[in-house]
Design a binder for these strands. Sequence first.
DNA 1: ACCCCTCTAGAACGAACGCTCTATCTAGCG
DNA 2: CGCTAGATAGAGCGTTCGTTCTAGAGGGGT
Lengths: 220, 220
Amino acid sequence: MKTTSEQSTPEQTASEQTASRQHDGAAADPGAGLGTRERIVRATARLMQRQGYEGTGIKQISKEAEATLGSVYHFFPGGKQELAAEAIRHGDREFAEMLRRALEGRPDPAEAVLAVAQDVAAELRASDWLDGCPVTATSLGTAAHAPGIQRAAEEAFERWRGLVRDKLLACGFGAQDARELAHTVINTLEGAEFTAQVARDEEPLLIAGRHLARLIDSYR
Amino acid sequence: MKTTSEQSTPEQTASEQTASRQHDGAAADPGAGLGTRERIVRATARLMQRQGYEGTGIKQISKEAEATLGSVYHFFPGGKQELAAEAIRHGDREFAEMLRRALEGRPDPAEAVLAVAQDVAAELRASDWLDGCPVTATSLGTAAHAPGIQRAAEEAFERWRGLVRDKLLACGFGAQDARELAHTVINTLEGAEFTAQVARDEEPLLIAGRHLARLIDSYR
DNA sequence: ACCCCTCTAGAACGAACGCTCTATCTAGCG
DNA sequence: CGCTAGATAGAGCGTTCGTTCTAGAGGGGT
């Protein structure tokens, strides 16, 4: 009893410690069964997606992730900025995966873009209009004083554009058309998602999907 | 002279007081010669445009506006949220004015939208990529806990869409086409501006302008 | 001369901020 | 069993946050 896990508030500390290790059987908590570092990244991503960079505190993150402040700074010695950049990369990977699936599953790029817009709308509605673009939400307002965050955001957009561009290239579009269309596809979805979020209405995203499909078709 | 302005740090207080009244002759300070309330609104708008809602402090606003905390809370008893909503309305009016001029000055709506995109790009570059959309920057991240701010943002977008829609209607477009095109015009410009800001490159906005013009033309 | 109302002025409050620091626990290894 | 490095734990630092509060200045109206 004297050595492990019983020196302060025994029962609570002990149970949380097992929970923070890999083999927890509980189901309700998202991120259960993950390593501490991963739980911190996911909590940061989700919170900053909803509250922005400045609106999210490190202590809130550590609480949400069921990690302690010590763990947060152990894994992310760069502090809040490093945490935010990592969260952006997490959101980057998630959306890229969704985009890749949508593009690979459909032969027609216009139809694929339309489907992506519908998927984004469905996800946004499912979150009760709270989960917008994590990259935008996290990086907005940090332009002046956090170059690392801006770079992570730019890399995310660039990756997404690359996926769309490659699909268009594979469908026989010209190099410049494909590159420019990829820009507008991503930018329009971005803007439409924000408008949909503010208006609590998925229509802007659905309109955007149709218009982007029409624009793509006009280049055939 | 003995009564007004000599009870603490005389010389500085005296000069600032005259500056905070209407008849200051200096030219360097933006907002000089304006009423206190208007100076506060403009300072709020500019700061939140660059730093977001959470990233901007009331004390910073009062300093930037050359007003005191007492004045800020005198004019805006609703505190930071009321201030932000007012700043959004200020940005709303400014962009609406620019949009109105661009649309009125050109008979062709596609050309007008292209010109708007170019204007936005020029302004963004002129600010060294710091001044993005004030409405987006101010309202992002407040969805959960500030309905007044969200409403002001939605009203701004709606007004801008209305201007574009009316232009299209006046040019003979169908009612539904005009309404939906207006949505995408505003949303695409929004998204492209943010991407341009992050990438420090005006190309996304120029591409957006060309694509929007093409999309509009496709509905003739 | 007086009052009254608008506006200015900034000290002060409790809470929260990002971050540092020391101490302890755990796992793996000899 | 002891040692060490990785990971956890959270009190506490100085600062800043949004807001409240009291006090006073300025300028008509009577």
